[in-house]
């Protein structure tokens, strides 16, 4: 006799055959949400790091075309300012390159009145007094704009945080759907096996012993479903990573996961299995409390 064999024939239930696929779907959806959130978080870090320590000075189009000397004057002020590491004026070709993704080829760009841009690298801690610098630049060439990217970055981060929140909500809903599924299937199992459960109960089995039967089954099916779900998640994330890399845009967040993030993704089926086991245990013990 296999002493570890379950006393209740849970594996024969039709509902038990359906559970691994439900759990696989739950792991897949949870895994994709998590991968999305982690990619977005990495992208936000990249945006923040990329823009930190840089400001852009923009000379209005009319002024820049009229006087190239204005740019030189502004660069001079910038280079003399404490906290400014470097100031590099962009020529029209550089500016046109920046605009090409949105408005297309050289002919069209050449016809546009483009502003002149100065790329400025500043120290971050402590940085230059940007308010004072803004006034000094405007006084030198009226209409000059100093952009520290904070506004654009704040909008982007706020949007990304909203997306992250949606991701957390999806994870919660998926977890709730998983719990509801396990409760339903465990209750069905309890109804199907009430005769065997009563026999075990009358032999002196503790509630935890009977719950252990369902818990063991949840562990087995959870790991099986989890492995299937994780395989599909890995394939999907790999595919998205490939395609997002091929787009080559710095604006779109790249779906790239580091080793720790892959580890977090691999923990999803373990988490789902643990939730399934705990849910099955609580459901069984609560139901058994009704027996005398």
């Amino acid at each position: 006799m296999n002493w570890r064999q379950r006393d209740l024939a849970l594996s024969n239930d039709p509902t038990q055959r359906f559970l691994p696929w439900m759990l696989a779907m739950i792991v897949y959806l949870a895994g994709l949400s998590l991968a999305g959130m982690m990619s977005l978080s990495s992208a936000m870090d990249r945006w923040d790091t990329g823009l930190k320590g840089t400001v852009t000075v923009q000379v209005p189009a009319a002024k820049s075309q009229a006087a190239d000397g204005a740019v030189g004057k502004l660069v001079g002020i910038l280079r003399r300012t404490k906290g400014v590491i470097a100031a590099r004026p962009l020529d029209n070709r550089d500016t046109a390159n920046l605009l090409r993704p949105w408005i297309g080829g050289d002919t069209l760009v050449a016809d546009l009145p483009l502003p002149r841009l100065i790329d400025v690298r500043v120290e971050t801690d402590p940085g230059p007094d940007l308010g004072k610098l803004r006034k000094a630049l405007d006084a030198a060439v009226p209409g000059t704009v100093l952009d520290d990217h904070k506004k654009a970055l704040d909008h982007l981060v706020s949007f990304a945080r909203s997306v992250e929140l949606v991701g957390v909500l999806v994870l919660l809903l998926v977890a709730l759907a998983g719990i509801a599924t396990v409760i339903f299937i465990t209750r069905t199992g309890l109804a199907i096996h009430h005769e065997g459960i009563e026999i075990l109960h009358l032999m002196g089995a503790l509630d935890s012993y009977v719950a252990g039967q369902f818990q063991g089954q949840a562990l087995e099916l959870g790991l099986k479903g989890g492995a299937i779900g994780l395989a599909f998640t890995a394939a999907t994330v790999g595919m998205l990573s490939h395609f997002s890399g091929a787009v080559g845009s710095d604006l779109l967040p790249k779906v790239e996961l580091g080793p720790l993030q892959w580890l977090a993704l691999a923990a999803v089926p373990i988490g789902v299995t643990a939730i399934a086991m705990v849910t099955a245990r609580i459901t069984v013990i609560r139901t058994l409390q009704r027996l005398p």
Binding site: M1, W3, Q5, D7, L8, A9, N12, E195, G196, I199, L200, M203, G204, A205, Y209
Partner: peptide
């Protein structure tokens, strides 16, 4: 009230298993 998916000896031994005795 025997458990049909278990063999005869498994059914007979069930009380021992439930009480945690060595098979």
């Amino acid at each position: 009230r025997l458990l049909n998916h278990l063999s005869v000896i498994e059914n007979v031994s069930l009380p021992l298993k439930v009480s945690g005795q060595d098979w």
